[in-house]
Simulated scan of single mutants.
Amino acid sequence: MSTLQITIAERELPENVDDTSESARLFREYVDLRNAISSEQTGGADDFSATYRESLGQAKGQTSERQHRLLAIHEGHVIGIGAVDVSLHELQAPAYADVGVHEGFRSRGVAAALLAEVDRLLHEEGRSATQTWVVHPPAPGPTRTAATGWGVVPADTPSVRFLERAGFALEQVERMSSLRLGAESPAMFERMRDTAAEKADGYSVRTWSGRTPDDELESLAQLHARMSTDVPAGALEVEPEQWDAKRLADYEQNALEHMQRQLLHAVAYDAHGAPVAFTLLSLGAGREVAFQEDTLVHADHRGHRLGALVKAANLLQLLEKHPERTRVTTWNAEENRHMLDVNEQLGFEAIGFEGAWQRREAAA
């Protein structure tokens, strides 16, 4: 196929998603294409789609990253999208980058043009290492094994060929798992919670929804910081994150107010009242799915079933406060066998795999 005539432009944020401005029209097309690509990668599921208002709110409320969003425009319409995110807190951390192209315009130079602009922005931002996470649908043929030795993705697919030509290496594979909620769920989660509590002598658990109480922010922020150092990362470059009460409060405000999410927390405390484990559920408005996000047990307190305890307690809170939710989706590194065991005991089943790809030097 011939190369298309396209224009690469950085997305402008409209005042609101419903106005008649050109920026609003292109913003809606950007969101539509992003959602379509996500649905294609996940077998037609719309669980990972975002509404126009959620997308605009997230972009306007972002305080932890500088986000660049790119549009590939052909004959006035968005046919490709790109992203570059750089942390405003960890100034040496790898950047996140991504490109995607409408299925009707692939193999015509659009992704390459987007990647060239991504590389220009990375150079401008002074970031060398780049990471991206890509959902890989099942496909026949050979597979590519992650550098960790755990998990594979199909090797002979357009996305893998593009990533490897661009200098990316598959560092890690994450398992996407789903839990169906049903009539048997309350009793199952109660048994899991009670069994875990027997092993967690001297610990207590507390749940709440919405914002973290002010008097908990600082201590919980320190647990959030450990997500960057204590979870399996394979050979992915990681800069230890610095969290404080304000950063955690800003993160929750963006989720609750700008992205229109509900947050459900479960936290375990030691005998001195210090938080030592937590888990978080995030719920988008008007959906049946909930997302199991960060879960962490402090390294000094492992071996007491605290991960199972907080997860079961939070799932019970979900059933009580949001009975309209029918399933929960989560992600875990394939080598994180302990947490996968916990999820499998709760009833999670694998539904897909996501590759964590890394390029250590941006193209010149």
Rank of each mutant, 00 (worst) to 15 (best):
M1F: 12
M1W: 10
L4R: 08
I6L: 15
A9E: 14
S23I: 07
L26M: 05
Y30V: 00
I37S: 00
S38M: 09
S38E: 09
Y52S: 11
Y52G: 14
Y52V: 02
R53D: 15
A59K: 04
G61I: 05
T63E: 13
S64H: 13
R69K: 10
L70E: 01
L71R: 06
L71K: 05
I73V: 15
V78W: 00
V78K: 01
E90W: 01
Q92N: 14
P94I: 08
P94G: 09
A97V: 15
D98Q: 13
R120E: 11
A129K: 01
T130I: 12
Q131H: 14
Q131E: 13
G141E: 07
R144T: 13
A146M: 04
T148C: 13
T148L: 11
V153T: 03
S159D: 11
F162L: 15
E164M: 12
L170Y: 03
L170R: 01
R180V: 15
P186C: 11
P186Q: 06
A187V: 12
M188I: 14
F189Q: 00
E190N: 07
R193K: 14
T195M: 06
D201H: 10
D201Q: 13
R206P: 01
T207S: 14
W208G: 04
R211Q: 13
R211K: 10
E218W: 03
S219R: 15
S219Y: 01
L223D: 01
H224M: 14
P240E: 06
A249N: 04
N254W: 04
E257T: 10
Q262H: 11
Q262F: 00
L263K: 03
L263H: 07
L264P: 00
L264W: 02
H265S: 04
H265F: 15
A266C: 12
H272Q: 14
F278A: 03
T279Q: 09
T279P: 05
L280T: 04
S282F: 02
S282H: 02
G284I: 00
G286V: 09
T295I: 03
L296C: 09
A299L: 11
L306H: 05
G307L: 02
L309R: 04
V310G: 00
K311H: 10
K311D: 05
L318Y: 05
H322Y: 14
P323H: 08
E324A: 15
R325G: 03
T326K: 13
T326I: 09
T329E: 09
T330L: 08
E335C: 12
L340C: 13
E344S: 08
Q345I: 02
Q345N: 10
L346Q: 04
I351D: 01
G352K: 01
G352V: 01
W357R: 00
R359N: 09
A363T: 13
